[in-house]
């Protein structure tokens, strides 16, 4: 995985501050990883290596927890994140149908990010909105009673909002990211590690 310039900068400039904030204690590894993922969207290997150095622990001891927990991702997420709830109530109410619909519409499988990094699709264990089952979390908003028809609606709203964005032509990191991505197009869907 090639790092973006912006990501390299964060790793070399900001990581140390995060680790310092947690007094360089190995027991604070989980909050440190959470904070780094907040900044970068995922946990690139160079970032984990740097954390290990700062905490004075073997790098593999950072890799272990990073691959153990559902929350951490080793590959960049899509611009839009779709999380399909697979709690009991959602499963009984057709959660797998919602998942299947997204897989079909996005043309990626559960746990993958689309090659253009636009969408990623995940399953979550239960978001605690069982009375609205089946539930899907779309870019941190909870959507209830999701049927294949609603999936189509969600996809349309993505396309609409992206249309608006294109008109505004955002500057800065997003533009840079897009340009870099255009260079390394046509990569295969990235499987999320640890799934």
């Amino acid at each position: 995985m090639k790092l973006l310039e912006r990501e390299k900068e964060i790793i070399s400039n900001e990581l140390q501050d995060i680790v310092d904030e947690y007094q360089s204690k190995p027991e604070n590894l989980i909050p440190i990883l959470q904070k780094v993922q907040d900044k970068l969207g995922y946990l690139p290997l160079p970032a984990m290596e740097k954390i290990a150095q700062a905490l004075h622990i073997p790098a593999v001891d950072v890799f272990g927890p990073a691959t153990f927990y559902n929350q951490f991702r080793l590959n960049p997420p899509g611009e839009h994140q779709v999380k399909v709830c697979m709690g009991t109530a959602c499963y009984m109410a057709g959660g797998s149908i919602a998942m299947e619909s997204f897989e079909r519409r996005l043309n990626i499988k559960e746990g993958e990010t689309s090659p253009d990094r636009k969408y990623s699709l995940e399953r979550v264990a239960c978001v605690g909105c069982c009375t609205m089952a089946p539930v899907v979390v779309v870019d941190d908003e909870v959507e209830g009673s999701v049927t294949p028809t609603r999936v189509d609606g969600i996809m349309l709203s993505f396309e609409a909002s992206d249309g608006e964005k294109k008109q505004e032509q955002v500057e800065g990191p997003e533009k840079e990211q897009r340009e870099e991505l255009e260079k390394e197009e046509k990569s295969e869907p990235e499987k999320k590690e640890g799934e």
């Binding site: 204690k25 909050p31 990883l33 927890p65 153990f68 927990y69 929350q71 951490f72």
Partner: peptide, 25 residues
Amino acid sequence: IFQGSGAFVCGEETALLSSMEGKMG
């Protein structure tokens, strides 16, 4: 607050403690 990072097994007390010590749950 300690934020769990998504592992059902961390509901088990000793696993929860492991995760609070920076290890796998």
